[in-house]
Design a protein around this nucleic acid. Sequence first.
DNA 1: GATAGGGCTTCCCATCATTGGAAGGTCAAG
DNA 2: CTTGACCTTCCAATGATGGGAAGCCCTATC
Lengths: 152, 152
Amino acid sequence: MKHSHTIGEAAAASGVSAKMIRHYEKIGLIEAADRTDAGYRLYTPADIHTLRFVRRARNLGFSVDDISELLDLWKDSARASKDVRRVADGHLSALRSKAAEIHSMIDALEHLFENCTNDERPDCPILKDLADDANPARAKDVGHKFGFERVC
Amino acid sequence: MKHSHTIGEAAAASGVSAKMIRHYEKIGLIEAADRTDAGYRLYTPADIHTLRFVRRARNLGFSVDDISELLDLWKDSARASKDVRRVADGHLSALRSKAAEIHSMIDALEHLFENCTNDERPDCPILKDLADDANPARAKDVGHKFGFERVC
DNA sequence: GATAGGGCTTCCCATCATTGGAAGGTCAAG
DNA sequence: CTTGACCTTCCAATGATGGGAAGCCCTATC
């Protein structure tokens, strides 16, 4: 084949490590590459194009399953924008949930910090709260995500 | 021992699953529990207190390593608030970075969505961008975290 | 007292994406 | 021909959790 590259070149050109390229091949995300007589994998510019697609989607946090679906849509010239939107929208929702979750943690920690004196006194409110056993009976406060209803 | 509980009771009272309690014991996060003659683990209220501490710290996203350190500080009555702050502050920084990263992804995806028509036309800009190979030479744009400098 | 059920035990495997290493084959330049 | 950089495969580990199998233990009911 013309313009074929080794896995190292494909890795450098695509931004996906050689290790991960082999991995993606093994799990079936990308097709098995052609080989030289010696068994070296060979990559065409089109393959590298695909790898760049994969890297960009990974950088956006898409799961391998998502990317597999996106690749199918990408290769299918008849695919509709709304199918892509469906995948991307699901991912966007997951990202927003994750962001909310992280902000809850940040808020809780910042709240504790406000009362933390940063001095040598051993009555740190952060530990105090984590250890707070004042009401051990309500062990099943599952509704309160971070067990912080009694804090501060 | 008085007031000893089975692992199931400890799990219900602490909010940590029995599976995870055994796991935490195996990896050394908590001490090995006493056993009955039959080999059942026994947990005192103090043990359950510790488990609640662990659960709360996990809910705040602390890693097992962080929690291990927090537990040491907790048990050491001479520990200083600033040591706890150090651990918690490191964790808070990591959370803020993670939040920023996620918001970058969300912004990038939302930006693409603005131009996505959600109709049957196959020229979806989301795929188009992921596939964009207009400038394949700059494969090492590591500085641009999401490979999005050319988008939209 | 036998039996059924549920809880307990250990051990192994799976997830998810990625990285590391070991042991060995191949290629190009010096 | 040697050296060193590259390639190959396979195996293992990460971190936190879950699932399941095989088997033991305890209690309640018949």
